[in-house]
């Protein structure tokens, strides 16, 4: 203590204290942040009550007072917490306007409100749960195997490079470049909107992790060749080359043809 007391006015004291305080804050935050999802996944009685109130205010006009579904919205019995979390946290629900497909936008509910809604819907009838941190851990996933599985199961709609694609009558498979691992996992187990369900029974957790690892690799991939042009393949590349090269050639021809003054 004498050692510390003697140096309490040392010029490095302020800096040392600051670093210690920042370190402590970071450590506490990290501990809290890792604990958070486990708490959210359980769904306490108060969460269910809060979720019910939010549901009655914001969702029941389309999905019915007992979540039984109406002419304007499907039933939510058995859709599970994962479905609610996916639809609400991505902003797809509540709908801004009726249309071919719910569009991802800024979420209308906070994380706590979303968790409460999910807990309420999950309390009505069993359904797919929100994936745990362990299920979403794709650090050890085989990305190459994920690529094979992605091309067999996902590429037909979401395109080989995850750029999304058109379906029928205005519906579309969304671009995956902004999708989070949790959203990908929830979409696979719940089958939102037109998307079919890829259950754990036929596409086990390791396979889903491999697919998530592959899509994440696609998201992080650089374009060694330059302009990626939306990664849509030879059609856009050909269009770009034909228009850009044709314009450059016309420009060069005009320059050659202008008589020097």
């Amino acid at each position: 203590m004498k050692f510390l007391a003697a140096r309490r006015r040392h010029p490095l004291v302020a800096a040392t204290l600051l670093i210690l305080a920042l370190g402590a804050t970071g450590a506490i935050y990290a501990a809290v942040a890792t604990v958070q999802p486990a708490v959210a996944a359980v769904g306490t009685q108060t969460q269910v009550e809060e979720g019910k109130q939010l549901y009655l205010q914001g969702c029941s006009s389309c999905h019915g007072l007992q979540s039984q579904g109406t002419a304007t919205g499907p039933t939510l019995i058995g859709v599970g917490a994962a479905s609610v979390d996916f639809q609400v946290s991505s902003g797809r629900m509540p709908l801004a306007a009726p249309g071919a497909q719910a569009v991802a936008k800024t979420p209308s509910y906070t994380e706590e409100e979303t968790a409460a809604l999910a807990a309420y819907i999950a309390s009505l009838s069993p359904g797919p749960a929100i994936p745990t941190a362990e299920q979403l851990d794709f650090a050890d996933a085989d990305v190459a195997e994920g690529g094979v599985l992605y091309r067999v199961n996902c590429a037909q709609c979401h395109q080989a490079a995850g750029q999304g694609g058109a379906l029928t009558q205005g519906k579309y498979a969304p671009n995956l470049m902004e999708a989070t691992p949790k959203e990908m996992y929830e979409a696979m187990i719940t089958g939102p909107q037109s998307m079919p369900v890829f259950a754990d029974s036929t596409l086990p957790v390791e396979d889903k992790q491999a697919i998530i690892g592959y899509i994440t690799a696609l998201q992080e991939a650089s374009s060694p060749g330059g302009l990626s042009l939306g990664r849509l393949g030879p059609v856009t590349e050909g269009l770009f080359v034909w228009t850009a090269a044709a314009a450059a050639l016309v420009g060069a021809a005009v320059w050659i043809g202008i008589k020097a003054r």
Partner: peptide, 8 residues
């Protein structure tokens, strides 16, 4: 039983 309704 491995294929849920809506599954592919």
């Amino acid at each position: 039983a491995d294929i849920p309704v809506g599954g592919l």
